Amino acid sequence: MTSPALARPSDTELLTLALDIASEAGRMIATAREGTVTVADRKSSSTDVVTQVDRDAEALIRHRIAEARPDDAFFGEESGGGEGSSGLTWVVDPIDGTVNYLYGIPHYAVSIAVVEGPADPAHWIERVGVVLNPATGETFTAVRGGGAFLGDRALSIPTPPALDQALIATGFAYDAELRGRQGAAVAAMLPRVRDIRRLGTASLDLCNLAAGRVDAYFERTLNPWDHAAGGLVVQEAGGVVVGRGGNAPSREFLIAVHPDLLASVEDLLDEIRA
Protein backbone atom coordinates (compact mmCIF):
# COMPACT_ATOMS: atom_id res chain seq x y z
CA MET A 1 0.00 0.00 0.00
CA THR A 2 1.24 3.51 -0.84
CA SER A 3 2.14 5.55 2.21
CA PRO A 4 -0.07 8.67 2.57
CA ALA A 5 3.03 10.67 3.47
CA LEU A 6 4.63 9.70 0.16
CA ALA A 7 1.45 10.11 -1.87
CA ARG A 8 0.63 13.61 -0.65
CA PRO A 9 3.80 15.53 0.12
CA SER A 10 3.68 19.30 0.44
CA ASP A 11 5.09 21.30 -2.43
CA THR A 12 7.68 22.70 -0.02
CA GLU A 13 8.92 19.19 0.69
CA LEU A 14 9.07 18.41 -3.01
CA LEU A 15 10.94 21.63 -3.73
CA THR A 16 13.49 20.95 -0.99
CA LEU A 17 14.12 17.47 -2.36
CA ALA A 18 14.34 18.67 -5.97
CA LEU A 19 16.79 21.41 -4.98
CA ASP A 20 19.00 19.00 -3.04
CA ILE A 21 19.09 16.53 -5.92
CA ALA A 22 19.70 19.22 -8.56
CA SER A 23 22.52 20.69 -6.49
CA GLU A 24 24.21 17.30 -6.11
CA ALA A 25 23.88 16.57 -9.82
CA GLY A 26 25.10 20.07 -10.66
CA ARG A 27 28.26 19.59 -8.61
CA MET A 28 28.97 16.32 -10.39
CA ILE A 29 28.38 17.89 -13.80
CA ALA A 30 30.60 20.90 -13.05
CA THR A 31 33.39 18.68 -11.74
CA ALA A 32 33.23 16.49 -14.84
CA ARG A 33 33.49 19.58 -17.05
CA GLU A 34 36.89 20.35 -15.55
CA GLY A 35 38.19 17.35 -17.47
CA THR A 36 37.59 16.24 -21.05
CA VAL A 37 33.99 15.76 -22.16
CA THR A 38 33.33 13.77 -25.32
CA VAL A 39 30.32 12.53 -27.27
CA ALA A 40 29.13 9.12 -26.07
CA ASP A 41 26.35 8.64 -28.62
CA ARG A 42 24.01 10.34 -31.08
CA LYS A 43 20.24 10.17 -30.90
CA SER A 44 17.78 11.60 -33.42
CA SER A 45 20.45 12.99 -35.77
CA SER A 46 24.20 13.46 -36.09
CA THR A 47 23.90 16.79 -34.25
CA ASP A 48 21.74 15.43 -31.39
CA VAL A 49 24.48 14.27 -29.04
CA VAL A 50 24.69 12.80 -25.55
CA THR A 51 27.72 12.60 -23.27
CA GLN A 52 28.44 10.02 -20.61
CA VAL A 53 27.98 12.80 -18.07
CA ASP A 54 24.34 13.19 -19.22
CA ARG A 55 23.79 9.52 -18.49
CA ASP A 56 25.66 9.54 -15.19
CA ALA A 57 23.81 12.65 -14.00
CA GLU A 58 20.41 11.17 -14.82
CA ALA A 59 21.34 7.92 -13.10
CA LEU A 60 22.26 9.89 -9.98
CA ILE A 61 19.05 11.92 -10.09
CA ARG A 62 16.89 8.86 -10.68
CA HIS A 63 18.56 6.97 -7.84
CA ARG A 64 18.10 9.84 -5.37
CA ILE A 65 14.43 10.23 -6.29
CA ALA A 66 13.83 6.49 -5.93
CA GLU A 67 15.45 6.51 -2.51
CA ALA A 68 13.29 9.37 -1.25
CA ARG A 69 10.08 8.86 -3.24
CA PRO A 70 9.85 5.20 -4.35
CA ASP A 71 6.15 5.47 -5.27
CA ASP A 72 6.61 8.36 -7.72
CA ALA A 73 6.90 7.92 -11.49
CA PHE A 74 9.97 9.09 -13.39
CA PHE A 75 10.42 10.45 -16.92
CA GLY A 76 13.92 11.42 -18.04
CA GLU A 77 15.61 12.30 -21.30
CA GLU A 78 18.27 9.61 -21.15
CA SER A 79 16.65 6.65 -19.41
CA GLY A 80 12.97 7.02 -20.24
CA GLY A 81 10.11 6.42 -17.87
CA GLY A 82 9.30 4.43 -14.77
CA GLU A 83 5.88 3.64 -13.36
CA GLY A 84 4.60 5.04 -10.07
CA SER A 85 1.54 4.80 -7.85
CA SER A 86 1.52 8.18 -6.06
CA GLY A 87 0.12 10.24 -8.92
CA LEU A 88 3.33 12.31 -9.15
CA THR A 89 5.90 12.21 -11.95
CA TRP A 90 9.43 13.61 -11.90
CA VAL A 91 10.28 15.07 -15.31
CA VAL A 92 14.05 15.39 -15.66
CA ASP A 93 16.62 16.70 -18.09
CA PRO A 94 20.02 15.99 -16.50
CA ILE A 95 21.89 18.38 -18.81
CA ASP A 96 19.73 20.67 -20.91
CA GLY A 97 22.04 22.29 -23.44
CA THR A 98 24.36 19.33 -23.96
CA VAL A 99 26.10 20.90 -26.96
CA ASN A 100 26.92 23.98 -24.88
CA TYR A 101 28.23 21.67 -22.16
CA LEU A 102 30.32 19.74 -24.67
CA TYR A 103 31.97 22.94 -25.91
CA GLY A 104 32.38 24.52 -22.47
CA ILE A 105 29.85 27.29 -23.10
CA PRO A 106 28.50 28.17 -19.62
CA HIS A 107 24.82 27.96 -20.60
CA TYR A 108 23.43 24.55 -19.63
CA ALA A 109 21.20 23.35 -16.83
CA VAL A 110 19.87 20.60 -14.63
CA SER A 111 16.09 20.73 -15.03
CA ILE A 112 13.83 18.91 -12.56
CA ALA A 113 10.05 19.22 -12.34
CA VAL A 114 7.44 17.41 -10.31
CA VAL A 115 4.06 17.19 -11.99
CA GLU A 116 0.74 15.76 -10.95
CA GLY A 117 -0.31 13.23 -13.54
CA PRO A 118 1.58 11.85 -16.54
CA ALA A 119 4.57 13.38 -18.32
CA ASP A 120 2.26 15.01 -20.86
CA PRO A 121 1.85 18.82 -20.94
CA ALA A 122 -1.74 18.44 -22.11
CA HIS A 123 -2.68 16.54 -18.94
CA TRP A 124 -0.19 17.34 -16.20
CA ILE A 125 -0.38 19.94 -13.43
CA GLU A 126 3.09 21.30 -12.65
CA ARG A 127 3.74 21.50 -8.93
CA VAL A 128 7.45 22.22 -8.54
CA GLY A 129 10.23 23.30 -10.89
CA VAL A 130 13.99 23.70 -10.42
CA VAL A 131 16.42 24.87 -13.13
CA LEU A 132 20.06 25.08 -12.01
CA ASN A 133 22.99 26.26 -14.12
CA PRO A 134 26.07 24.44 -12.75
CA ALA A 135 28.44 26.79 -14.58
CA THR A 136 27.12 29.99 -12.99
CA GLY A 137 25.35 28.74 -9.86
CA GLU A 138 22.11 30.49 -10.81
CA THR A 139 19.11 28.54 -9.53
CA PHE A 140 15.54 29.22 -10.62
CA THR A 141 12.67 27.72 -8.64
CA ALA A 142 8.90 27.76 -8.74
CA VAL A 143 6.05 26.24 -6.77
CA ARG A 144 2.53 26.22 -8.15
CA GLY A 145 0.71 29.16 -6.58
CA GLY A 146 3.85 30.15 -4.65
CA GLY A 147 5.74 32.32 -7.14
CA ALA A 148 8.98 32.04 -9.06
CA PHE A 149 12.45 32.90 -7.79
CA LEU A 150 16.03 33.38 -8.89
CA GLY A 151 17.82 32.44 -5.71
CA ASP A 152 15.97 34.47 -3.08
CA ARG A 153 14.73 37.12 -5.53
CA ALA A 154 11.08 36.92 -6.55
CA LEU A 155 10.55 37.10 -10.30
CA SER A 156 7.85 39.01 -12.17
CA ILE A 157 7.93 39.43 -15.93
CA PRO A 158 7.99 43.17 -16.66
CA THR A 159 5.42 44.87 -18.86
CA PRO A 160 6.62 44.06 -22.37
CA PRO A 161 7.60 46.57 -25.05
CA ALA A 162 5.93 46.83 -28.43
CA LEU A 163 6.76 43.93 -30.73
CA ASP A 164 9.25 45.93 -32.78
CA GLN A 165 11.24 46.55 -29.60
CA ALA A 166 10.99 43.00 -28.27
CA LEU A 167 13.98 40.70 -27.79
CA ILE A 168 12.93 37.22 -28.91
CA ALA A 169 14.60 33.95 -27.94
CA THR A 170 14.28 30.77 -29.95
CA GLY A 171 15.96 27.47 -30.72
CA PHE A 172 16.34 25.10 -33.63
CA ALA A 173 15.41 21.47 -34.22
CA TYR A 174 17.95 18.72 -34.88
CA ASP A 175 16.37 17.74 -38.21
CA ALA A 176 18.36 19.44 -40.99
CA GLU A 177 15.40 20.18 -43.26
CA LEU A 178 13.36 21.70 -40.43
CA ARG A 179 16.35 23.75 -39.28
CA GLY A 180 16.53 25.26 -42.76
CA ARG A 181 12.89 26.36 -42.59
CA GLN A 182 13.41 27.71 -39.08
CA GLY A 183 16.41 29.72 -40.25
CA ALA A 184 14.32 31.26 -43.01
CA ALA A 185 11.59 32.15 -40.51
CA VAL A 186 14.10 33.83 -38.18
CA ALA A 187 15.51 35.80 -41.12
CA ALA A 188 11.99 37.04 -41.85
CA MET A 189 11.47 37.91 -38.18
CA LEU A 190 14.68 39.91 -37.69
CA PRO A 191 13.50 43.16 -39.33
CA ARG A 192 10.29 43.08 -37.26
CA VAL A 193 11.75 42.87 -33.73
CA ARG A 194 14.60 44.33 -31.67
CA ASP A 195 16.76 41.23 -32.11
CA ILE A 196 16.91 37.43 -31.82
CA ARG A 197 18.75 35.33 -29.25
CA ARG A 198 19.55 31.63 -29.75
CA LEU A 199 21.36 30.43 -26.62
CA GLY A 200 20.82 26.68 -26.87
CA THR A 201 19.15 25.71 -23.58
CA ALA A 202 15.35 25.71 -23.52
CA SER A 203 14.97 25.59 -19.73
CA LEU A 204 17.23 28.61 -19.29
CA ASP A 205 15.57 30.46 -22.17
CA LEU A 206 12.29 30.11 -20.29
CA CYS A 207 13.88 31.25 -17.04
CA ASN A 208 15.47 34.22 -18.82
CA LEU A 209 11.98 35.28 -19.87
CA ALA A 210 10.82 35.02 -16.25
CA ALA A 211 13.81 37.16 -15.20
CA GLY A 212 13.09 39.85 -17.82
CA ARG A 213 16.19 39.06 -19.88
CA VAL A 214 14.16 38.42 -23.05
CA ASP A 215 10.61 39.40 -23.98
CA ALA A 216 9.38 36.17 -25.60
CA TYR A 217 10.53 32.67 -26.43
CA PHE A 218 9.29 30.18 -28.99
CA GLU A 219 10.51 26.82 -30.25
CA ARG A 220 9.40 23.67 -32.04
CA THR A 221 10.21 19.99 -31.30
CA LEU A 222 10.67 20.45 -27.55
CA ASN A 223 10.17 17.43 -25.31
CA PRO A 224 8.39 17.51 -21.93
CA TRP A 225 11.68 17.49 -20.01
CA ASP A 226 12.83 20.59 -21.91
CA HIS A 227 10.11 22.85 -20.55
CA ALA A 228 8.40 21.23 -17.54
CA ALA A 229 10.42 23.10 -14.89
CA GLY A 230 11.13 26.29 -16.84
CA GLY A 231 7.52 26.53 -17.95
CA LEU A 232 6.33 26.62 -14.36
CA VAL A 233 8.91 29.34 -13.57
CA VAL A 234 7.44 31.43 -16.41
CA GLN A 235 3.85 30.91 -15.29
CA GLU A 236 4.60 31.74 -11.68
CA ALA A 237 6.39 34.90 -12.84
CA GLY A 238 3.21 36.03 -14.61
CA GLY A 239 3.76 34.68 -18.11
CA VAL A 240 1.90 32.23 -20.29
CA VAL A 241 3.27 29.03 -21.85
CA VAL A 242 1.09 27.73 -24.67
CA GLY A 243 1.06 25.98 -28.01
CA ARG A 244 -0.48 27.45 -31.13
CA GLY A 245 -4.10 28.51 -30.91
CA GLY A 246 -4.14 28.40 -27.12
CA ASN A 247 -3.48 24.66 -26.97
CA ALA A 248 -1.12 23.10 -24.47
CA PRO A 249 2.57 23.31 -25.42
CA SER A 250 3.78 20.28 -27.35
CA ARG A 251 6.49 19.13 -29.75
CA GLU A 252 4.57 21.00 -32.43
CA PHE A 253 5.04 24.40 -30.80
CA LEU A 254 5.70 26.27 -27.58
CA ILE A 255 5.37 30.00 -27.01
CA ALA A 256 6.27 31.66 -23.70
CA VAL A 257 5.56 35.35 -23.26
CA HIS A 258 3.90 38.04 -21.16
CA PRO A 259 0.13 37.81 -21.79
CA ASP A 260 0.06 41.35 -23.21
CA LEU A 261 2.47 40.40 -26.01
CA LEU A 262 1.02 36.98 -26.86
CA ALA A 263 -1.33 38.02 -29.67
CA SER A 264 1.35 40.11 -31.41
CA VAL A 265 3.89 37.27 -31.25
CA GLU A 266 1.36 34.71 -32.50
CA ASP A 267 0.39 36.95 -35.43
CA LEU A 268 4.03 37.42 -36.39
CA LEU A 269 4.75 33.69 -36.17
CA ASP A 270 1.79 33.04 -38.45
CA GLU A 271 3.02 35.64 -40.96
CA ILE A 272 6.52 34.20 -41.19
CA ARG A 273 5.27 30.59 -41.17
CA ALA A 274 7.34 29.73 -38.13
Results as ranks from 00 to 15, higher is better:
Val128Pro: 05
Ala263Cys: 13
Thr16Leu: 08
Phe253His: 06
Tyr108Ile: 01
Leu204Gln: 08
Pro191Ala: 07
Asp120Ser: 14
Thr159Cys: 12
Thr221His: 06
Val241Leu: 14
Glu78Asn: 10
Pro106Thr: 05
Arg213Tyr: 06
Pro70Ala: 07
Thr89Ser: 05
Pro134Ile: 01
Gln235Ser: 10
Ser264Met: 04
Val257Phe: 06
Ile29Ser: 00
Val110Ser: 04
Asp71Ser: 09
Ala142Trp: 10
Thr36Cys: 00
Glu34Cys: 08
Gly230Pro: 11
Val99Gln: 03
Asn133Asp: 10
Ala216Lys: 09
Asp215Cys: 08
Ser85Leu: 10
Gly117Arg: 06
Leu204Lys: 08
Leu262Tyr: 00
Ala202Gly: 13
Asn208Thr: 07
Ser250Asn: 13
Ile125Gly: 12
Phe172Pro: 00
Asn247Asp: 11
Glu58Cys: 14
Thr2Asp: 10
Leu167Val: 10
Gly26Pro: 09
Pro224Glu: 02
Ala162Ser: 15
Ala135Glu: 13
Val234Asn: 07
Glu177Ala: 14
Arg153Leu: 07
Ile61Pro: 00
Ala30Ser: 06
Ala211Trp: 02
Met1Ala: 05
Ala274Thr: 06
Pro160Tyr: 12
Asn133Gly: 02
Thr12Arg: 03
Ala109Asp: 05
Arg55Asp: 03
Gly84His: 06
Leu268Thr: 07
Glu83Ala: 15
Lys43Phe: 03
Pro161Trp: 07
Thr47Tyr: 00
Leu204Met: 12
Leu132Ala: 01
Glu78Pro: 01
His227Val: 11
Val240Trp: 02
Leu19Gln: 15
Glu177Pro: 00
Pro4Phe: 04
Phe253Ser: 05
Ala202Val: 13
Ile61Ser: 04
Ala119Ser: 13
Val99Tyr: 05
Leu88Phe: 09
Gly239Cys: 03
Pro160Val: 02
Val265Gln: 08
Gly151Arg: 08
